[in-house]
């Protein structure tokens, strides 16, 4: 079965969704992500959906649940790159991503994670501030 590739960068897991989603594929991503968080002790997850021209209620719910599960394992999730038409549609559907951070692009997503989590490993910083 197809899998959505997940990239590891230090304390971060990067998921880039590049093709149209089957329900199975979304569920598989959730499983893979949870397993990788457990294996790597990742503290942040970045899900890039800039290539998606459609997010329906099923996909939205799985993403929201994934973020909640990740938080229970001490990893914060940032959803990045949502297209305007997708955002308008989700608002009209009445869906919100409670507890999911959002950012305009991957770069801003990483910045946001640093702000929330403090410096991530692999970053050149002696600053120990965090929450």
């Amino acid at each position: 079965m197809d899998r959505i590739p997940i990239l590891r960068m230090g304390d971060l897991l990067l998921v880039t969704i590049q093709f149209e989603l089957h329900d199975r594929l979304v569920m598989a991503m959730q499983d893979d992500l949870m397993r990788l968080i457990a294996e790597t002790g990742a503290r942040g997850v970045l899900i890039d959906i800039s290539a998606l021209d459609l997010v329906d209620s099923f996909t939205a719910r799985v993403i929201a649940n994934t973020a909640e599960m990740a938080r229970m394992m001490d990893a914060e999730t940032v959803l990045v790159g949502m297209q305007p038409a997708v955002a308008i549609t989700l608002v009209e559907l009445g869906l919100s991503f409670h507890g999911v951070y959002t950012a305009l692009n991957a770069e801003k997503g990483v910045q946001l994670l640093k702000k929330i989590r403090g410096p991530l490993t692999g970053e050149s910083s002696d600053d120990t501030a965090g929450e």
Binding site: D23, D53, L54, D56, P84, V86, I88, T89, L93
Partner: peptide, 17 residues
């Protein structure tokens, strides 16, 4: 238009499911 296209296709996804 793109926004209404996205709305339509999303509705299709919900209803087909």
């Amino acid at each position: 238009g793109l926004t209404n296209q996205t709305k339509l296709v999303t509705a299709v996804s919900e209803l087909a499911r």
